[in-house]
Amino acid sequence: MLTLSGHRVDQAQWCPSPNFNERPDPADISLLVIHNISLPPSQFGGGHIEAFFQNCLNPADHPYFETIHQLTVSSHFLIRRDGGLLQFVPCDKRAWHAGVSTFQGRENCNDFSLGIELEGADNIPYENAQYATLAALTQLLQHHYPAITDARITGHEHIAPGRKTDPGPAFDWRRYREQLADFREEKA
């Protein structure tokens, strides 16, 4: 069971990122955005994602890294292929994950959202362990931030259409929502 203390998930590996700032309204946490990331693209494992979010990605490690190593981005959470959970930014702070984005007519989704990265790629199926961790994490976040209703869970592709494609067609939204409902029934 996941627990949250002081805007950090107790069971998550803490990997602090310098890429965050204050939210315009710290009480306005009302959207959950699901992403995917793999570094290098479509390759899994290693510490490249952590290095990227901590501004330590070595451009000499892979040609693709030469094109992104100077970006300053982050997310609140990363769920590894094995279901392992990492946290980079406390939930009450604004992580830099959504970029230019709009949800239900409201721009700058970073201001009011939490970002969860799944280690993955648009067209590679996600692992069972990732769905299980995602459902447990979602339930925890919804409990602590009740403005994040099921209708306020979205993909990066939905808030930045034409610019972003993740979590992509391999992400099974129905399965995720069913696991979330099952998780809630077990906790009831």
Rank of each mutant, 00 (worst) to 15 (best):
E66C: 10
I153H: 06
T3K: 07
G168Y: 07
L39R: 02
F171D: 12
T138S: 15
R8Y: 03
E127S: 12
D82S: 14
R163N: 10
A151V: 05
P146S: 06
F112H: 02
P40R: 02
H76A: 00
A12N: 08
N123C: 08
I49S: 03
E157S: 12
E22V: 04
A121F: 04
K164I: 03
Q11H: 04
F20C: 15
F20S: 14
W14P: 04
F183D: 05
H35C: 12
A147S: 13
L31V: 02
F88R: 09
A147C: 07
V33H: 04
S113K: 08
F65S: 07
I34M: 06
W96I: 06
I29S: 12
L57E: 09
N19S: 14
R8F: 04
T3S: 15
T72V: 08
D61M: 00
L32C: 13
F88S: 07
G168M: 01
E178A: 11
I37M: 01
A136I: 01
G84N: 08
D122L: 08
E127I: 01
L31I: 09
S42E: 13
T149Y: 05
H97P: 09
T154R: 14
I68A: 12
D182I: 00
I148K: 00
L31S: 10
K164F: 10
S38K: 00
T102V: 10
P16C: 11
R163P: 02
A160C: 14
I37P: 00
I79Q: 06
G47N: 10
L2S: 09
E50Q: 15
L140R: 11
E117C: 10
R81N: 03
A136M: 10
T149V: 12
G105K: 12
I37T: 06
F44W: 01
F65H: 00
